[in-house]
Amino acid sequence: NLKKGGRVLGNGGWLYPSEGTESLGAHHHLAHNANEYLPAQAPYRNVLKTLGETARAKGQSIVLSAEGFCRWKPANFDVLSGLLGFDTYELVYVVRDPLDVFPSFWAEEVKQGRSMGLAERFAGEFADPMKSRLLNPMRDLNPLLARDRAQIHA
């Protein structure tokens, strides 16, 4: 939806870039391959610098979107912001109903060949829901809330 709304976003001062998407629409490539973008010698590092320069020259903010960003270390967002040339950044974290998110997450794991059966995967998470990243959003949010450069919207 964000990709389709690129023109409307642009009129509102937002840039939804193709960089980091690998033609997938959302920024899955960036989210799942931070090592190809963030380190000093990363092959796509300059792509991010150029993207930031373009956005700042147009007075636009950048919107990046992919569920895979939830796996990033909080410091990665600081590095990304720095590469793009922004002093601060805002993260929008969508808190979903656990009974909705779990089957979706599990199906994605299956597509990527990394999961066990649904019942076994389900039992492992629900055995201790407070330790579960899927069932307890504060596991993701608390480290992000501690970042000085970040504003978090949940």
Rank of each mutant, 00 (worst) to 15 (best):
A34H: 08
V63F: 09
K49Q: 08
A66R: 06
D78E: 15
N35I: 09
L80W: 12
A66P: 00
G85H: 06
N76Q: 15
P74K: 06
L64I: 05
V79E: 01
A40C: 05
A75F: 10
A75M: 09
H32N: 15
R56Q: 14
L83N: 06
L84T: 11
Y44N: 15
N76E: 11
A57H: 04
T88I: 04
H28L: 08
L30K: 04
A31L: 11
L30P: 04
G52E: 09
R56I: 12
S65F: 03
G59F: 04
Q60P: 03
T88C: 11
L64W: 04
N76R: 15
N76M: 14
L84G: 09
F86T: 10
H32E: 14
Q41L: 08
W72V: 03
L48Y: 04
G59M: 07
A75Y: 09
S81L: 09
A55G: 03
A31R: 10
S81H: 04
R56F: 08
Y44I: 00
C70A: 10
A42K: 08
G82V: 01
N46E: 14
A31Y: 10
G52T: 08
H32G: 13
V63N: 03
T54Q: 10
P43H: 01
K73A: 13
R71N: 10
L83K: 09
D87H: 13
K58I: 00
L84A: 10
L48W: 02
G82A: 11
F69S: 03
Q60C: 07
D87M: 02
N35V: 11
Y89R: 03
A42H: 04
F86L: 03
N35Y: 09
G59H: 09
L51C: 02
G68H: 15
G68E: 12
L83T: 10
L38K: 12
P74F: 07
Q41K: 11
L91A: 10
E67A: 06
K73E: 15
C70Q: 14
A66K: 06
H32S: 15
V47E: 13
Q41Y: 01
K58S: 12
K58R: 12
E53R: 14
K58T: 00
L48E: 09
K58F: 02
T54V: 03
Q41T: 12
L51S: 05
P43A: 00
P43R: 02
R56A: 13
R45G: 09
L38T: 06
K58P: 00
G68R: 13
V79D: 01
